[in-house]
């Protein structure tokens, strides 16, 4: 099953890189989101992949008795997911504002005013 995850990581990274190389700002943003997801999965893979054993101690026990999923990557990813929401929302608003100003989704249009100044 890990191999499926490996495949998935590759696909997500490829898609993310391809999207951030586009001229459209929306695609750039989607690309960043995909890259974030890919990275989360990669971190997840760093820990031991375990099925059906969440890192939660049973009610009647004080420590784990058997194998359990690695909690450290999970804590890291949880933080990353929440932060990425902050990033995405800020980027979306930024994008909206840029569009309101220059009326274009084209990243190249961002350069033009500056060049005119020169």
């Amino acid at each position: 099953m890990e191999l499926l995850l490996v495949l998935l990581i590759g696909v997500l990274y490829s898609a993310g890189v391809y999207l951030i190389l586009r001229r459209s700002m929306v695609r750039l943003l989607l690309g960043i989101m995909l890259l974030g997801n890919a990275t989360n999965l990669l971190i997840f893979l760093f820990g031991n992949i375990t099925k059906g054993k969440p890192p939660i101690i049973k009610a009647d026990l004080k420590v784990f008795e058997e194998i359990y999923a690695d909690p450290v990557p999970q804590a890291l990813i949880l933080t990353a997911i929440v932060i990425s929401f902050g990033l995405t929302s800020f980027a979306i608003v930024l994008l909206k504002r840029v569009y309101a100003l220059i009326n274009s989704d084209d990243l190249d249009d961002l350069n033009t005013p500056e060049e005119e100044d020169l």
């Binding site: 929440v82 929401f85 902050g86 929302s89 979306i92 608003v93 909206k96």
Partner: peptide, 13 residues
């Protein structure tokens, strides 16, 4: 904080 942040973002938009 999470409620505040999410609602601030979404409602302002």
């Amino acid at each position: 904080v999470v409620i505040g942040v999410v609602l601030t973002i979404l409602f302002t938009i």
